[in-house]
């Protein structure tokens, strides 16, 4: 039972890591039906920015709390600017063209950004210092969950709730939903579609940066390639939960995390990926749009 609980918590922690990234995939897909493959790279860039700024602030003798606050804030802004620019340069000109073109453009952006960081920073793995607080009251339970995992879980939950509220109750959220339903119609009734899409990318990239800082703190290392592996799994999680749906992305991530964790714990970690993809196939066979995905009616 104790072992089960440990695996459950480890799966939960893993799920919240995937969820942090899956939210970004799902938001962009929900609005413009584009799988933004560059999302993983924005996450990596967010992490790198925080690492560089954190080191700089720390050397200036700032206290840890402020270092964390400013480096996270600035890396969010930097990553958001990246997301905004990428959309303008690589996706906007292809809007209305076949979806495959934008997809290929996304893969291209992903490769370009990876190599940009490889060349401008380093090919090496760098240590990522944890600026996150250690909770002393968690010490007795450290075999189950550690402070960083708990913070990631909490942040994921808060972000999911905020995003849901934002989409449900604000003007921007309404415009987003309208754009997602029918871009042309939304434009006709006066929604500034370009702005809505830009905002979506800015938000998605900001989330990626938060994810980058938290997940790198958890792993204790960073490298230009980390976005790729994490991105693939988060993408699977988003599809599993129903791509385009915010609660779906989180639910899908947890299901993926638990599947991998229990699969590893009770069977073998050799087949971790196999478990992930088997569960994906099973769910897509039963519900082709994912667990919480809305059924898309073909417009004839």
């Amino acid at each position: 039972m104790e072992y089960f609980l440990k695996l459950f918590l480890s799966g939960t922690a893993k799920g919240s890591i995937y969820a942090l990234m899956a939210l970004g995939y799902t938001m962009v897909y929900g609005i413009i039906q584009l799988i933004n493959f560059a999302h993983g790279e924005i996450y990596m860039i967010g992490g790198f920015t925080a690492l560089i700024l954190g080191g700089f602030f720390f050397s200036k003798g700032m206290p840890v709390g402020l270092v964390l606050f400013f480096s996270v804030l600035l890396s969010i802004m930097y990553a958001a600017a990246f997301g905004f620019t990428v959309e303008k340069i690589a996706y906007r000109p292809l809007r209305g063209k076949p979806r495959l073109s934008a997809l290929i453009s996304a893969i291209g952006v992903s490769i370009v950004l990876q190599n940009f960081v490889l060349l401008s920073q380093t090919e090496k793995f760098l240590p990522f210092p944890s600026y996150l607080p250690e909770f002393s009251w968690l010490q007795p339970y450290k075999a189950y969950i550690n402070s960083t995992q708990l913070i990631i879980l909490a942040v994921t939950t808060v972000i999911m709730v905020l995003l849901t509220l934002l989409i449900k109750f604000t003007r921007t959220g309404k415009a987003m939903r309208a754009t997602a339903q029918d871009m042309h119609m939304a434009q006709l009734v006066g929604v500034d579609v370009n702005r809505v899409i830009s905002v979506t990318f800015i938000m998605g990239s900001a989330l990626a940066a938060i994810g980058g800082v938290l997940i790198c703190s958890y792993m204790g290392q960073i490298n230009y390639y980390i976005g790729f592996v994490a991105g693939i799994k988060a993408f699977v999680a988003a599809v599993l939960g129903g791509i385009g749906s915010i609660p779906g992305a989180v639910l899908g991530s947890f299901i993926l995390g638990w599947t991998e964790s229990f699969g590893t714990g009770y069977i073998s970690s050799d087949y971790e990926d196999a478990f992930a993809f088997v569960i994906l196939i099973v769910i897509l066979l039963i519900k082709p749009d994912g667990i919480l995905g809305r059924t898309q009616k073909q417009k004839v």
Binding site: V229, S261, S269
Partner: peptide, 13 residues
Amino acid sequence: NPGAPDYSAVVNK
């Protein structure tokens, strides 16, 4: 899996 962000399940094991 090389490159995975988290090994806590196998560490529990």
